[in-house]
């Protein structure tokens, strides 16, 4: 009897546990409190969308989650294990599992698309070059850029660069992806191709936290919308709740403005 009950309980325990848990993250620059104790639980397969005015701390929160910015306070757990970011080895191992997509792409300028995707696998994971190369081609194919893999960042369009950067993150087999306004530096015409890739990721069950102003796209895909202002998470809920029935007056105000700006949802 006991021998089947234990695994079942274990299984339930894993199901209930958030894949990423952020507790009480605070960050101040000089006198300015950029983050004032933000907490977030992210379950496997979730897509959390961070919205809020600029300066709300969305970007800082995302950068604190993988410690590109060191938080002054707060703790982070990935798959139930706390991240001890002061230990370099722990930090580097953790960052491999958390993919990051930047607003301005940040492709390595001296490497072509293929090398951009391959370098992390070779240098960080220690994979043989040939094997990493095959995987890189696969990832580039997935984002529709197999024909452009010999091109350098300077030869790619913004949308293509962002797709390469998504392929680069995916090649590391991340458990969670953080996307910091992935389309806000793009021409309107190029946003669609990046959205399609992100949508595809979501449909395949990737856990993501994304800061964006594209609320039409966000609400069609998000499992939860998180409204931030002034370093705090003010309100959170399903897209329907946040956009149609927000409790907080600031949330309502922001949502109505942004809906006007970024069009029909």
């Amino acid at each position: 009897m006991a021998h089947w009950r234990i695994p079942r309980m274990d299984c339930r325990h894993i199901m209930a546990e958030p894949i990423l848990r952020i507790e009480n993250i605070s960050k101040r620059y000089g006198k300015k409190d950029v983050l004032k104790g933000a907490s977030l639980d992210v379950n496997k397969g979730d897509l959390k969308i961070l919205i809020g005015p600029s300066g709300a701390g969305k970007s800082t929160l995302l950068q604190c989650i993988n410690f590109l910015v060191k938080p002054d306070e707060g703790r982070v757990w990935l798959e139930g294990r706390e991240v001890h970011y002061a230990h370099k080895r722990d930090l580097y191992a953790y960052r491999q599992k958390v993919g990051m997509i930047f607003q301005d792409f940040n492709l390595f300028d001296h490497l072509n698309a293929l090398e951009n995707v391959r370098i992390g696998m070779v240098q960080v994971k220690g994979m043989p070059k040939a094997e990493a190369g095959e995987r890189a081609v696969m990832e580039l194919e997935r984002v529709g850029l197999k024909d452009h893999m010999q091109k350098y960042p300077a030869q790619l369009s913004g949308g293509q660069k962002q797709r390469v950067s998504i392929a680069r993150a995916l090649a590391m087999d991340p458990k969670v992806m953080l996307l910091d306004e992935p389309t806000s530096a793009l021409d309107p015409e190029l946003i669609g191709e990046v959205h399609a890739v992100i949508r595809d990721l979501g449909n395949n069950g990737m856990t993501m936290i994304m800061a964006t102003h594209q609320i039409g796209f966000a609400s069609s895909l998000a499992s939860e919308i998180v409204f931030m202002e002034d370093g705090r998470i003010l309100e959170r809920g399903t897209p329907d709740k946040i956009f149609n029935d927000a409790q907080n007056a600031r949330t309502r105000e922001f949502c109505s403005k942004i809906t006007e700006l970024y069009g029909e949802r």
């Binding site: 990051m100 390595f108 370098i119 992390g120």
Partner: peptide, 24 residues
Amino acid sequence: GQMLAAQSLGFSKVRMIFSIILPQ
């Protein structure tokens, strides 16, 4: 941004310097 990208992939500082920063 080049450094942030390398760090976000899990590069150590030394590896980042030798394979990302110095070649550029």
